[in-house]
Design a protein around this nucleic acid. Structure first.
Length: 376
RNA sequence: GGGGAGAUACCAAAGCGGCCAACUGGGGCAGACUGUAAAUCUGUUGUCGAAUGACUUCGUAGGUUCGAAUCCUGCUCUCCCCA
């Protein structure tokens, strides 16, 4: 058993559980900081563990394959050892780059041919070699290769894209079955539901994904520009079908409110670049709503970034100081903002977990979402 | 003392008769960012107005011209070279 549900919220579909991996147990709901290139940008592992309380971080197949390359990672003994991170890692397959780097790639039945954004060289990613690369990286949880379809996307294209993703999935699962982990511990493969904003396709895709009977399942292709309400509808449709007793991972989501709404609909795992990227760009997430710390009004506000914040930096440094650092382009500003935001995200899902266990998640969620959508 | 160059908006810097309320950077102000090509990108930045628009600007005082940041004269100031 890789996943155990500890309790369910009576008024929503939220649940609290534990996901067991080779590098540690992960309490869910969980937020996973994104560390695309083998680093959560600007954050030391020490801070990820002690300040942020991260349980698992992401890496990216496409980016790590291009740099430093699989030979280096293999020689290092896998990504965990290479980056000196002894806790769980999940790698995205490169399916998101099919979307975000769409100008630099061509799709074929075989896979995606990318023109490297670094040096222009050509690289083919297939269902099979994406598994091979993720075996070399050695993440605890690896993702099937998919096409993250853009938004808007017409129904005809959405079907075509979903079916391609399903065929790639069959090949991924097959190849996963005939290959072995390289470093002496087990890896889990998660398949990904697609289907754009179409309920019929989402349900069909969820049926397909459920039929693979993998230890966990993911929902992809959301938060790519569609309204949040549409995203919530898709999650509801899909989660009626995905097995209840396995973890559900909503990929790339999202805002604090998105996450709480996702939890309420039965999602267990989230990841998003928002806390780090937006933090670097001067946007803070707080219990009082979002803050653009670059704004003039914080210039002489010497109160802490977040007096009740989980991380030490949130309680120690003032808004005025962070305003100064960010305005001045100082690296410490990006670092403090990233740590604060990640700590906020982690404490938010930790509190959600406690509320689920107490059985009063639903009401708390509604109140919290209202506050989060404000602007401080 | 002699010779030369120049003064443009918060700063730097284009413009050298009408297409100039004035290119472009920086700074300022605001916005965006959702499985990271992002310590990035976008908008805005004389005054008033929601806007068509109106009004006041290119050291300063005059002049030439239908029309001047652009041409002429005086003045003030700055910088460079020689003695």
């Amino acid at each position: 058993m890789m996943f155990r549900i500890e309790s369910r919220d009576p008024s929503t579909s939220a649940r609290a559980g534990i996901l067991y991996t080779a590098h540690g147990d992960i309490p869910t709901p969980v937020f996973m900081p994104v560390g695309t290139a083998g680093t959560v940008k600007g954050i030391l592992h020490r801070d990820l563990k002690n300040e942020i309380n991260a349980h698992i971080i992401l890496g990216n197949t496409y980016h790590l394959y291009l740099r430093p390359g699989t030979d280096i990672i293999k020689e290092a003994g896998g990504l965990h050892r290479f980056m000196s991170w002894d806790m769980p890692v999940l790698t995205d397959s490169g399916g998101y780059q099919v979307f975000s780097l769409a100008e630099n790639r061509k799709l074929t039945e075989e896979g995606a041919i990318f023109r490297s954004h670094i040096d222009g060289s050509k690289h083919t990613f297939t269902a099979e070699n994406v598994i091979d690369i993720q075996r070399i990286i050695g993440a605890d949880i690896i993702m099937a290769f998919d096409e993250c379809a853009p938004h808007p996307c017409d129904h005809a294209y959405a079907i075509k894209s979903m079916e391609l993703t399903h065929r790639w999935l069959d090949r991924c699962v097959k190849h996963f079955g005939v290959t072995s982990p390289l470093y002496g511990y087990d890896q889990m493969l998660f398949p990904i539901v697609q289907g754009s904003v179409y309920g019929d396709l989402r349900r069909a895709s969820a049926e397909k994904i459920a039929s693979m009977e993998m230890p966990g399942n993911a929902i992809g292709g959301l938060s790519v520009g569609e309204p949040a309400e549409v995203m919530y509808e898709m999650i509801e449709a899909v989660n009626e079908i995905l097995p209840v007793d396995r973890p559900r991972y909503l990929m790339g989501v999202g805002t604090p409110a998105n996450i709480l709404e996702g939890i309420a609909r039965g999602i267990d795992m989230f990841d998003c670049v928002m806390p780090t990227r937006n933090g670097r760009n001067g946007m803070l997430f707080t219990s009082e709503g979002t803050v653009n710390i670059r704004n003039r009004k914080w210039k002489d506000d010497f109160s802490p970034i977040d007096a009740t914040g989980f991380s030490e930096v949130s309680r120690t440094y003032s808004k005025a100081y962070l305003h100064h650092l960010i305005i001045s382009g100082e690296m410490l500003g990006a670092q403090i903002a990233s740590i604060h935001n990640l700590a906020f995200y982690l404490s938010l899902v930790t509190e959600a977990r406690e509320r689920i266990k107490e059985g009063n998640f639903g009401k708390w969620k509604d109140e919290t979402v209202r506050k989060l959508s404000e602007r401080a």
